[in-house]
Simulated assay, not measured.
Amino acid sequence: MASSLALAVSACGGGGETAKPQDNGGATPATPATTQPEAQPAASGDPQKLVIYTGRDKNIFEIVLPKFKEKYPNIEVETLEMGAQQILERVRAEKANPQADFWWGGTQSALATAANEDLLEPYKPTFSDKVPDLYKDKQDRWYGEMLLPEVIMINPQAIKKEDAPKDWDELLDPKYKGKIVIRNVLPSGTMRTIYSAMIFRQGADTPDKGYDWLKKLDANTKEYTQDPTNLYLKLDRQEGAISLWNLQDVLLQSKKNNHPFDFVYPASGAPILVDGVALVKGAKNMDAAKKFYEVLFSPEVASVLAKDRFQFPSRTDISKDDLPDFMKNLELKPLQLDWDVMASKEKEWMQYWDENIKGKGGK
């Protein structure tokens, strides 16, 4: 179904993960490009088209897309929702015949992998110098749109905040056994980043210590839910009291969707996931994609998303007056990570976790 705000395939992504069914996370091959209708460049004078593969949610679309349509009414936008890992698999499968123009909502690891596989088109946007080097590709193949600190998520009705874990290692305390519920890891950019970070901090050269850490966490984990919706439901029902999640979505679910959620910012620091964007190499609607790039990162849109959707913008020139109070005062202490190593090792680490650790920590 195609329309200016078409929502075709629903699945889980990185930031703002809400009410999305599970994607395959790369467990099965993405649909080959030959089975999909081939996108064609717009002829001169015809309405332009823009195809976006996205890990973002409808609550973000309803802010951004109308602003884009207001500025460019002649561009028809089609969005297909899926998880960050699934986007990578699909763009990879379609390399010879790209069907997407713009990748909106990808983890740093997924985008770096795509860049290294020559799947992304370099583009230096007008705001390039406003985004720190830490949050963009050196060759301008992707840019971080927002920062997603990964935190300890709790239901304070099920566990008092003062009794909740204050840092990552406290999650392994036996007193939390059966109180932790985790969103299924492999399809989720958020969870893959958290778990990879936990391995890295124990020593990336010899991941055995990291695997042991995850095995202890698995022993305390009551359940892995298939998608974010089920994660929220388990916490709502107090079938679990603790989880690991991105800060933006914790705030969004508690302040906008009335879930009884709160967070603990880990004392040693948080993996700060860069949720980014990129142009697909060989895109058939490159001009429209570049226009969307600029609108998405505009100070106007960034400030609205910060206030209404709790997004931490990557741009450093957004006025503090245009940010919500909690964002002005919260220190985003980063966990020290080598993101290049994380990108190169993530697939190996997560496959090992899935095959050798998941559901076996208590055995």
Rank of each mutant, 00 (worst) to 15 (best):
M146C: 15
Y224Q: 03
K161T: 13
T229S: 13
L171Y: 03
D208Y: 06
D129A: 14
Q226D: 14
Y232A: 11
K136T: 09
L147K: 14
K175L: 03
L231E: 02
L186N: 11
G189C: 04
E162L: 07
D163M: 05
K216S: 11
F200M: 14
W168T: 04
T126S: 15
P132V: 13
M153Y: 01
T190Q: 07
G203D: 06
K138N: 13
P174S: 07
Y232C: 02
D137M: 12
L148K: 03
K234N: 05
E162I: 09
V185Q: 07
K138Q: 15
Y211C: 05
D137V: 09
P149E: 03
R192M: 09
E239C: 01
K222I: 01
P125L: 10
I199C: 08
G210D: 05
E145M: 15
M146V: 14
E223F: 08
E239L: 06
K161A: 13
A164I: 01
Q226H: 11
P149V: 04
R237I: 00
K215M: 14
N184L: 10
I199H: 04
E150A: 12
Q226P: 12
F127V: 05
D167E: 12
E162S: 13
T221C: 08
M146A: 14
P149W: 06
E150R: 10
V185C: 05
A219V: 10
E239I: 00
Q157N: 13
Y195M: 12
Y195R: 02
A164R: 01
K234G: 00
K138L: 13
T229W: 12
L148I: 11
Y135P: 09
P149Q: 05
K124W: 05
V185L: 10
I199A: 05
L217V: 05
E121A: 10
W213R: 11
G210V: 05
T193G: 06
K222M: 03
F200H: 15
A164V: 02
K177R: 14
L233E: 12
K175P: 02
V151Q: 00
M198I: 08
G203N: 09
Q238F: 01
K136E: 05
I194K: 01
D173F: 01
K175A: 06
S188G: 08
K216L: 09
L231F: 09
Q157S: 10
L233W: 07
E121G: 07
N155I: 02
I180S: 01
K130F: 10
P165W: 02
I159L: 11
I182N: 02
A204V: 13
Y224K: 04
P207M: 08
G210R: 03
A158H: 00
W213K: 12
Q139G: 04
K161E: 13
K209G: 03
N230A: 12
A158Y: 04
K179L: 12
Y224M: 04
Q238I: 01
D205L: 11
G144C: 14
K124R: 15
K124F: 10
V131L: 10
M146W: 14
E170R: 07
D163G: 06
K160R: 09
L134Q: 15
T221L: 07
T190H: 07
D133H: 12
V185I: 14
N220T: 03
D133F: 12
K234P: 00
I159T: 03
Y123F: 15
L147S: 10
T206K: 15
Q157P: 01
Y232N: 09
K138T: 14
Q139N: 15
E239H: 03
F200E: 15
